[in-house]
Design a binder for these strands. Structure first.
Lengths: 154, 154
DNA sequence: TATAACGGTTGCAAATTAAAACCACAAGAG
DNA sequence: CTCTTGTGGTTTTAATTTGCAACCGTTATA
């Protein structure tokens, strides 16, 4: 965590998020949170990671505003961990990761879990990038542009 | 890398990819590759990471079939690193990461680079998940289902 | 012939991660 | 009231990973 950030003083839009969720476990915790897990013990049992690591990761996610602690739910005197708005914003990323995984990390007929539409129970569509006018875009059709240079003397 | 994978013997569609790209640097290398970087030195200068780390990451990406080494390009006797099909499949994930970063990691008026359509120079659309029938889906509208249990005696 | 640039590898110290033991609190059993 | 169990962590310690710096081999350059 909190790795030094190369020689660029301002991190780009890809590097900043990685500072918050760029480790193996954080995304898995978030995925479990999307699946409805909320309690420390639930995450630990589901992921099988050491308790101190889970503790540190949850603390980090809370510190980054990705999860939040809420006091109770059932009567237990403990707290629960829930996704914030910011955390919920990670859903497309998780879907992208899952779709890529399904495409390339499973043998042709190997069974795997699928993300489906609750209403129809059909698999969701593939994520695709589109232009403003609706054309589908591949990587080569895009370009990263820098913001117009701000005049310092202004 | 190669972390032990909890108590589940079969990794899910989210965990498997993380084994390949689940560290801070790999995704940044891939992003740079999408931006056209190919040479060891280019990556190193762009990212400012230690050469041994870059060496290890590139080796790992090649081992996972995400990048490939090609012998030359200009006359230099060195090799270049290019994305495979599998690597190019990460484009949506990178876009998702970037969009999330732009949403939550920049102050309202803070300038940041933008991903634009090459043809129109307009920013690309937001990634959105849709059902087969085209309805837009939020996280709550989806469900992860396990594959039908295979009859072992078959 | 020396010098520098490129593409790494190797050695080592420092930071991070993970396993295991421990601790605090509450609930229930006897 | 004491004993045990379950939950939610923290502390301690060892193993792994990270990153800096130095080195090496090859090829271009002066």
């Amino acid at each position: 965590m909190a790795k030094r950030v190369s020689h660029r003083d301002s991190m780009c839009g890809v590097a900043r998020p990685l500072d918050a969720i760029g480790d193996w476990w954080s995304l898995l915790i978030i995925r479990d949170a999307f699946d409805g897990l909320r309690r420390f013990g639930e995450f630990q049992k589901s992921l099988g990671l050491a308790k101190n690591i889970l503790s540190a990761r949850l603390r980090n996610l809370v510190a980054h505003g990705i999860m939040d602690t809420v006091p109770a739910a059932d009567g237990s005197p403990y707290q629960e961990y829930v996704l914030t708005q910011k955390g919920q914003g990670l859903f497309p990323l998780l879907v992208a990761l899952r779709q890529w995984g399904e495409d390339f990390f499973f043998a042709p007929n190997e069974p795997h879990v699928t993300l489906v539409d609750r209403v129809t129970s059909l698999p969701v569509r593939r994520l695709e990038l589109r232009a403003q006018d609706g054309r589908m875009l591949m990587a080569e059709d895009t370009l990263v542009v820098v913001p117009p240079p701000v005049d310092e003397s202004e």
